[in-house]
Amino acid sequence: MTLLIKDKDIVVPGEILAKGMDHLPAQGTSRENENIIALQLGLANINGRLIKVIALSGKYVPKFGDMVIGKIINITFSSWIVDVGYAYEANLSMKEATSDFIERGADLSQYFDYGDIITTKIVNVNKQKAIDLTMKGPGLRKLKGGRIIQVTPSKVPRIIGKQGSMISIVKEATNCQIIVGQNGRVWIQGEDPKKVRLAEEAIRKIDKESHKDGLTDEISRSLKEKKK
């Protein structure tokens, strides 16, 4: 019958969030008898009857449809092996990599070589978490130059913001190209190294202070100040 927490409270695993059957458990929570308990360290989010916990930490778990930034770590007979930041590597097959006709026995490294960084999309994750990737889709390509920083994967939605509000503020203020992968890898490229540094600092700040209120305003203010 009662809600024991407020919206945006920090909750810990095992904390009772609500009693009674009036509320429903969503992501990061579970029902135990009459109670709804938190399963992760994170921020409580109350949306009508739904209660969920937005995690503040945790590793990347691959999901169908995620756009991620990966690194080619191996080439086999008919595919590329890609590191996407999960415990096991992902597979990019010849068919999904390019629409070109590849002759039998051709050197695959002319398409993607060892160490190449790509933006790619997850098309399949099976029960054992074997991941299949594709390069077919808008914006999926090899990345040249720039730098990559790693942030907490669960904070990617915060970095992007509502309809991309947060990331577009950083992009506009720093004149940088930024791509945020769902696996927490952020690629930044810009002409001016100082501005790239500024963009990196801003993203690290969002990562660190994602649980605070009014962060979008604060980021835009601090970027304006530093620009002067």
Binding site: P13, G14, G28, I37, L39, Q40, L41, S57, G58
Partner: peptide
Amino acid sequence: LADSGLPMTDL
């Protein structure tokens, strides 16, 4: 474990 963000039913 809680800090690492793994799902736990309790501490």
